[in-house]
Design a binder for these strands. Sequence first.
DNA 1: CGAAAATTTGACATGACTCAACTGGAGTGG
DNA 2: CCACTCCAGTTGAGTCATGTCAAATTTTCG
Lengths: 209, 209
Amino acid sequence: MAHPNEFTKKLVMTEEIAHQQLIDYIKDKISITPEHEALIKSRFHLQKLKRKEFFLREGDECYSQGFIVEGTFRVFFIDQKASEHVLYFGFKDWWVGDIASFHSQEKTNMNIQAMEDSSILSFTKDDLEWLFIQVPPLERLFRIMAQRTLAVLQKRFLLTISASAEQRFLELIQRHPGIEQLVPQHQIASYLGILPESLSRMKKLLYKK
Amino acid sequence: MAHPNEFTKKLVMTEEIAHQQLIDYIKDKISITPEHEALIKSRFHLQKLKRKEFFLREGDECYSQGFIVEGTFRVFFIDQKASEHVLYFGFKDWWVGDIASFHSQEKTNMNIQAMEDSSILSFTKDDLEWLFIQVPPLERLFRIMAQRTLAVLQKRFLLTISASAEQRFLELIQRHPGIEQLVPQHQIASYLGILPESLSRMKKLLYKK
DNA sequence: CGAAAATTTGACATGACTCAACTGGAGTGG
DNA sequence: CCACTCCAGTTGAGTCATGTCAAATTTTCG
């Protein structure tokens, strides 16, 4: 085998490392015992996804959520006119999943796709309900998480209805510098809620100023 | 005093009745002891608001959330161009508040106004944090609540970005029959994210079909 | 009743969409 | 290494939904 190209990103992630990262994340927010740690680890399973592979696909019945250990994901849904809408991009230490179908246990209409080679710790609704019983403090963690996510989504919603596409674009690249290198432009357009053509034109005008 | 007009809505609500309604709501979702009940009641205070009065105003520092006992509220924010955007309407047994400023403890940029004479049980962040310690099962209730709210907001967001104003209008009046009698049309337009003039024209076209 | 607010209507402007053609770079296979 | 293909991105022309501004009309409420 040739020696590895120094620019090739290698995934050396192991479940052990991933679990430790998750535990560190959790301990930053709530107090848990070593016994709790072991229980949590037992229900989070490492899943490696190559670029463009899906963590969740529209119509999946076996719904699961995930904690991103490394990499980037895009969460999108497809409307009746078959056009894609990016709900958000997920990065390291973010949770991804379709919260709506989580409750209803109906088929999801979300898609979650890796933008680059990524690692994610996944768990099912049953895992989580079991963990809530075994590790009561997790209720608190997930309450805080849900409330923060809610605040973020609310901000995104308010921005979408009150600001122009140009303002939304500027806000995005300010909040996520470098996202344009990571995510193709037509997906950024999709996140902004406009067509790729519109974004292309908008950028031309923007850089003329 | 003249005998009361039979069409005048009278508020006979008492804190006792309101507390019972809250406890019934909570018991439907989690198990709590009689001691818990007393603790909860001690932190929720009844507030009566007449039509057009505000439960929360932009810039308020003393942030509080509320559980609607009776009546209707509208939750809206005002953008840089001084136009109002209705985030949602709140009805009996709903929770209202600005989840974003709840965490940050910064001044809110939300407004919550009674659409008719209403009663609401209000509580502060300190009340809630204290209650989470005294009544641990409440963490679960608020986790479930936040996740449901999140699912609803996500649905609203997806609808807003993927459906036409007309489709959104039809969805609204289907989900809330009678809302047109309760809420003035320009506020419905604001909820839909369009101007009152546009809604007026849209309805004319709609009923021509 | 009369003022203020809400709604409707009209004329016009505009941002984003649609559809279609073109450009250019990345990857593939001969 | 060069054609070939494919896909992302750009550009152009025309359309449409919704916004803007202004005025007329209706409704609400003190």
